[in-house]
Design a protein around this nucleic acid. Structure first.
Lengths: 345, 345
DNA sequence: AGCTTTCCGGCAACCGTTTTCCTTATTTTC
DNA sequence: GAAAATAAGGAAAACGGTTGCCGGAAAGCT
């Protein structure tokens, strides 16, 4: 209840243990040569006063703060979170604490945060968030290493850790081909969004490798369920036949799924469906559960953190690092032979 | 490109400006009495060296670090995020930085974080996250103030900022009554979850105030869409008639909505639907868009941060603070008179 | 001219820790 | 038994800033 008055200092500990501050410091840090009895006495005093060394004062000496800043450029969103969690986890294991800064997509705010982080002497900075394109470097000539996670820096000399979205899209298409689909449509987000373009291009390319054409030109729109539903209308209105839809996001896929059902097309029997993001809320809410591409954002955050730690320790890894995506197969694209057979009747 | 070698110190600035460090400090902080010319000279030197005062060293003197720790007890989840954003925003306005700590629902991890935060001399701590019940205080006798946000502390002497879920549930029911529904069912999360119980009790109570009984006993299950769908089966199998369903979460509501449509019941004409959380992904994805109770988590985070700041400045607000929820009406519960009339035919 | 003010800016203490010497005892060695 | 080696712990100087106090110079007053 009654909050403790103030933090105990090492001087308090030293006094209680009847030694000098220097000795107390050595005792607590296992330095110098002290009698075991003395060491214990100091430790006991520290325990009694619930002493915790002032990290600020300590870093004054060591030059390292064991903190890193994490700036999300867009508002902390669904994509930043897993990255953040992964990074925090990896950093925490290295005893480093994370300053969270929500940039809100506001350059002023961002610059302000960079300045505060520098004044707090963070050992490094991770920049994350979603953007339509690679972003401009957060600042030039920073005295600390910076790693971009999920988002990527326009400067190729910077270290960016990103998912291999093209690879993910290829896996999605490959899977659809493997379950026997050949007339594959693609519904995705806005064309001005790099992810949408990359995924669409990779999908088309993978089809081409098998000598196939898309069932329809890729449909660019928004990332929402509403767009997914709308897109189905467009697909059905067109004269092209399709037996699968690869969607640029799980939300789109879900919209597609709902609209297909409403139109009397069965998933997966008539149309197989693959989403992107592997967002549990969507993959599980969808009926049937949705096959999806997982970008492993948490792993990405972890990788970014590890690269940052390495950079802090003097071995930076400049450049663009693409981490593999993997496909999680669920019922929306599973085609049990029996049904396939009944289809062929 | 080439990262700057090291941070400039105030001694560098002083040397460049040709004054003593003390004078430089005063010049930069607007203290002491200096000639305007001197002040400018120092400021210019600081600019040239892109000097940023070392916050750690500074706080050594002031005793304040202008940082707070934020511990999420469960893994950073959908509910922690808005709270976090709100708090970060309010704190940032007060020039405070936030240490993010992901407790993962692991007491060991949590205690570890408390210790690191204390060693970093945070000015205060915010604890947030989702839990089935009020949680045990994070630690006894901390030397810094603590505020619990969203989650609440079992110790009534602690400061907890929580949404008024009962009030929210009452508003939902009131709205359904206002649009002429009288046979209202309730589908919600697991009974061992305090939120589920509170909302269910408040809903029943509000009905009783109008002399009404629930259309069916409250259905406790999970928080998922799947449970919502399942619950509709149970409701339809029962002999009770119902013209509205108030759901304990938007996900449940969406499941209910889908299942109702599949069963041939129209929303909102036959059954009006109200959810809880006002989660855009669900309210917008749902067809029709879902009416829902908004807990204003971002505001809650902001309020928590403000209370923490107040506590840091010496005026704590112990106890349990319930913030009002509000209802966001959308089509799932809108009943245009024409349709109502056609129902009555 | 001599005294008091006012104005600037330097000096040094202090914040909490770590670390490098150094000084004492206490042993060991010849 | 004296010299040397070793062990144990203290004193003090950093680390980077802030701030109270003080001194010197210039200006104002009789």
């Amino acid at each position: 209840m009654g909050k403790l008055e103030r933090h105990a200092t090492i001087a308090d500990v030293a006094a209680l243990a009847g030694v000098s501050v220097g000795t107390a410091s050595k005792a607590l840090n296992g330095r110098g040569s002290l009698r075991e009895e003395t060491r214990m006495r100091v430790r006991e005093a520290a325990r009694q006063l619930s002493f915790e060394a002032n990290a600020g004062a300590r870093s004054l000496h060591s030059g390292r703060t064991y903190t890193v800043g994490m700036i999300t450029t867009d508002t902390i969103g669904r994509f930043s979170i897993p990255v953040l969690i992964g990074a925090e986890d990896a950093l925490g294991a290295g005893e480093m604490s994370v300053f969270l800064c929500d940039g809100r997509d506001d350059p002023i705010r961002e610059q302000y945060y960079v300045r505060t982080l520098l004044s707090r002497r963070v050992d490094g900075i991770i920049v994350t968030g979603r953007r339509t394109e690679a972003r401009a470097p957060i600042a030039a000539d920073l005295p600390v290493p910076v790693v971009y996670a999920f988002i990527s820096s326009a400067d190729p000399g910077d270290c960016s850790v990103v998912p291999d979205e093209a690879g993910g899209a290829r896996k999605a298409v490959e899977h659809l081909l493997a379950v026997g689909r050949t007339r594959i449509a693609h519904v995705t987000g806005p064309e001005h969004h790099n992810s949408a373009r990359v995924r669409a291009a990779a999908a088309r390319e993978r089809l081409a490798e098998d000598g196939l054409e898309p069932a329809a030109p890729p449909l660019f729109g928004g990332w929402s369920e509403a767009w997914g539903r709308q897109a189905v209308g467009i697909l059905l209105a067109g004269r092209a036949e399709f037996d699968a839809v690869f969607c640029g996001s799980d939300q789109i896929a879900r919209g597609v799924c709902d609209a297909l059902r409403a139109a009397g097309r069965r998933v997966p029997q008539d149309v197989a469906l693959v989403g992107f993001d592997n967002w549990d809320v969507m993959t599980e809410g969808c009926q049937p559960p949705l096959t999806s591409v997982d970008m492993n954002l948490e792993g990405l955050g972890r990788a970014a953190a590890e690269m940052l730690l390495a950079a802090i320790n003097g071995t930076p890894s400049p450049g663009w690092h693409a981490l593999p995506c993997h496909l999680v197969v669920r019922e929306s694209s599973a085609v049990p032979p029996t049904i396939k057979t009944s289809n062929e009747l």
